[in-house]
Every structure is written in C-alpha cells, then in structure tokens.
Design a protein around this nucleic acid. Structure first.
Lengths: 189, 189
DNA sequence: TCGGTATCGCTACCATTGGTAGCGAAACTG
DNA sequence: CAGTTTCGCTACCAATGGTAGCGATACCGA
C-alpha cells in the first residue's frame, strides 16, 4: 500500500517509510485532541517526524487525513453469497471503522472542511468515495443514485451519531440500522 | 425568540435588535464562502455591525451559528393525525431547512467543530437538539434510543448528501428516504 | 437639562495554526 | 568522491478567532 509501483530506481536519498507512523500518529492525535486540536505540529511530533517532511508528501492537512482514512478503511471485502449479505457487510465495515478511535472524528472533520474547499472535495471524492461507489455499483448493478443514497444513509447516520455523542454507535442500533436499510435495498430497484 | 423574559427595565443604552440581520448575514456568508470562509469579520461586515458587537452577544462563532440554526429551524409543527404523518412532517422539515442556502453547510460546520469542543457540544445539544428530541419523544412516546436513531438517520443522511455533493437532496431521494424510515418507525417499538 | 449606565463602532492587538523558504546534514547511487 | 534527493530544523508569513480599551451614543430617572 505504501510502495509505489514505479519500478525505476531514482537517485538520491530514498524516502523513509513513515506512512504507517504518520497515519497512526494522526488517528491517535485526533482521538485525543479532536480534529481541531490535531495540529500538524502535534501530528508531526507524535509521529517523530518534522512537519516539513509531512508537507513534502501531503499537500495539505485534508489530504493527509484523507489518505489516512483510505489506509484505514481498506478495500471492500469480496462479494459474499447474497445481496443482503453484501450490503450488511458494507454497513458493518463502515460501522466498525468509523467506531475506531479517531476515525470518526477525522472523517467528520475532513468531510466538513471539504464543504468549503473544492480542491479537498476533489481529493476526498476521488481517493476515498469513488472506489467504494464503483465497487458497490459493480457488485449490486444498481443505478448510481440508489448507491449514493445507500452511502448517504449508512455513512451519514454513523457520522452523525459519532459527532453528536462523541461515541460510536452501539451494536443494537447498528443492527436496527442494518435491518432498516436491508428492507429497503434488499431487492433491486 | 429574541426577547428575554426578564421583565425588568435595565438602565443604559438598550441593545439594538440586530439578531435578524446577523442571522441573515451568517447564512448568506456561509452560503457564498463556505463554513471556513465565513469569517467573523465577514459576517459582521455583511450584517453591517462591528465584530465586537457580535462577540458581546454570542460567546463564540459556534454559539452564533447554533443560535442561527435554532432561529432557522423553528419549532416542530404540531402533531397531525397519524404517527406516520408526524414522522413524515419532521423529515420534510429537516430536508427543507437543510436544503436552504447556507443552512446545510452551517449545520455541518458547527457539528464538526462540536466534535472537538465540549463546550460547543453542550451548546449545540442543549439549544438545538434537545428541544426536538423532547418534542419527538412526547409526540411518539418511544424510548429515547429510538428517537435518537431516527434523528441520526434523518439529519445524518441529509447532511452527508449536502457535504458530499454541495447540493441539497433531490425530492425523489427524500421520498425514498422517507418511505424507508416510515416502514421502520411507523409502528411503535 | 443633566448625570448614570450600558451599548455601539472602531482600532489595535494577541495566540494559534496551516503552510512555506532555506539551510546544513544525511543517505543512497555510481 | 561527486551528484542527487530527502531529512530535520529554524524562521517566517497570512489568516483567523477572540479580547482590550477608547470615545461616542442612546436611554432612564431626577
């Protein structure tokens, strides 16, 4: 994940493999101090890396957070037997990841920054959301607007709970949410 | 809404009635420049008021936005005939208001600021969310966790759409969302 | 009309934070 | 060793939320 696919051998000092440390430091700092409190200086310090080094790799704080989320979420699990199982797995993945320390706050933070920053919105949409939309569309064969609604409901609900209470959604509520969504999306449009 | 209930007559120069102008300027500025671009200086300028005057009434930007939202949303309409109609009316109110220029962005912005600011979370929860929770609970007679889930789904979905696309949810999707929610919440727990 | 009081607008100011420039040192290739 | 690139560091800038203090202004009561 952290290796480029360019097989050339560039001259000069090679880049140190700091992505894992920086991502971990980012989530830890956001978890402890919140999105606003997670200063680039603090993230750099927590990662044991100079701030300028971070800015050499990520053009902005939003881009760093986005890549951190991409790294955290990972790819969607492969399509299991039924449509319902696939949808349930996707909801479960979202709930699990968003509930991890720092992930929900980081997601919500970059999400809102993106509202007022077209460049960041582009990054967020391209790097984080688009792959999932495509995977869902391929697996379900549904029109795009239904996929979008599914994502809005799933992610929006989980983030809202995280933001309002500061704590991830309890399992019982995730189950209720899943049941409601499945009843609506189980059969094709 | 903007008048205190203390019926005493305090001495000194009375406060000018600027709430309406400030609220309008806030939404207009957020709409045009986004949440991050809506500087307190710019809001004050748009309202034709000094920044210090705003800070004399609202202790922080988050508090101002919250009061602006409280003013925008207003009270829930009275309970109509059926439970389903009441739920549908609440969803419709949320969708309509969040779709108004600046409201969705302002909501999302203050929402995320609240994640990392306990004081603001208190303000947001007390002044904006609590009244609606109570009204819904009184009207529906449901346990609190179900009310919370209903609000998470409704508001979270609408905000997520606003944030990701920058545009309010189209009517067809609101209708689909309403139908899904009603099927789940129509009968009591 | 005049004092008391509280607000208004204004300017100046501070601390924080995202982001940048430039430097010498380090690491790798050939 | 020369060339190249990255690293850490310090210093720095612009923007922004928020504050302090000023003279001016509007209202009340005597």
């Amino acid at each position: 994940m952290t290796r480029e696919t360019t097989s050339a051998k560039p001259p000069g000092r090679p880049r140190a493999g700091i992505d894992a440390e920086v991502f971990a430091a980012t989530l830890k700092t956001v978890h402890e101090l919140g999105y606003a409190g997670a200063t680039m200086d603090r993230i750099a310090a927590a990662a044991g890396v100079a701030k300028t080094t971070i800015y050499r790799r990520w053009p902005s704080k939003g881009a760093l957070i986005t890549d951190c989320l991409v790294d955290t979420f990972g790819p969607l699990p492969p399509m299991p037997g039924s449509r319902a199982e696939y949808l349930a797995a996707a909801i479960d993945l979202a709930a699990t990841k968003i509930g991890q320390p720092g992930v929900g706050a980081a997601f919500a933070g970059v999400f809102v920054d993106a509202v007022s920053d077209a460049g960041l919105r582009e990054i967020l949409s391209t790097r984080l959301q688009a792959p999932y939309l495509r995977a869902l569309q391929d697996a379900l064969g549904e029109p795009e607007d239904r996929i979008l609604l599914f994502v809005d409901i799933t992610v929006g609900t989980l983030l809202h709970r995280m933001g309002m209470t500061g704590a991830p959604m309890v399992e019982a509520d995730v189950a209720a949410l899943t049941e409601m969504i499945l009843r609506h999306f189980a059969e094709r449009a």
